[in-house]
Amino acid sequence: MRHTIWTLVLLLSPGAFLMARDGNLPRPAPPDTIGAWKLSSPEPQAITAESIFEYMNGAGELYLAYAFRGLDVWRYGHQDTTITVEAYEMDSPEDAFGVLSQDLGGENVGIGQESVYVGGLLRFWQGRWFFRILAETETPESRAAVLELGRALAAQIPAEGRRPKLLERLPREGLTSESIHYFHTHLCLNSLYFFAVENILQLSEQTNAVMGDYHLDPQSASLLIVQYPSTASATIARDSFRGKLLANLAVTPEPIELARLESGEWIGLRLEGCYLVVAFRSRSRDLCERLLKAVILTKRGAQQ
């Protein structure tokens, strides 16, 4: 029913739509002009999981680390300023949010289900789409055009899904909202924080992870929660992490395992069911312990 209504909305809306990749809902398309900017070609540059490496000068993994379906790119020109529109189609709204959450810093401009804007760059998610719209030079006019493009694209997609439920496990007190990240793989974790070269947390496409920074004066810490497919895999990951990173250190006994690194930083672990929680980047043992205890995990493990 929702799709039927949505199809009607699309048919009644101005502007063109692109054929879907897989027979589902059409892909969004931006208008031919926006302010003084004109679209160089109505047909987007269509990027696939294979061609994204060429498009990004050899780097596409941070998108492929989520369930990536395809990318459409359009370019607008006006005088010397180019506006580039990128529409990333993901498998799920959670992953669309995940891509945005690689960096949530910026001005919330109220576009899509969540947006950030800084210096000519608008990033937002709507449904299972993530958008990135960049004006090479920011002026009042280009800012207005970028935001208008964002609104036009967001209007073509139903708002569906929401932030990953796992984020609700992060304790609220002291959490810096723009520090939140949602991801799956070691590559993403490694782009955010370096624990080890090796994938010692056994992250994969089958794991869900959230991370956030906490500031509880005068102390600070970060918290990572990983949801594994099973209790067994979570236990293996905990043992791997403990064995590789905490070897030869004094570690307090379960359920809250705390250790102090040579650098003076504290790391804490808590394993419960299919969840592994890590508190880190802190000079405070107390804060690590407090955060680990504050995480509320279901007793039924993976069921959320």
Binding site: F194, F195, A196, V197, E198, I200, K244, L245, L261, E262, S263
Partner: peptide
């Protein structure tokens, strides 16, 4: 053995 490098090693350099 660079694959064995962890945060502790890196901090110690």
């Amino acid at each position: 053995d660079w694959r064995q490098v962890t945060r502790r090693d890196f901090v110690r350099d």
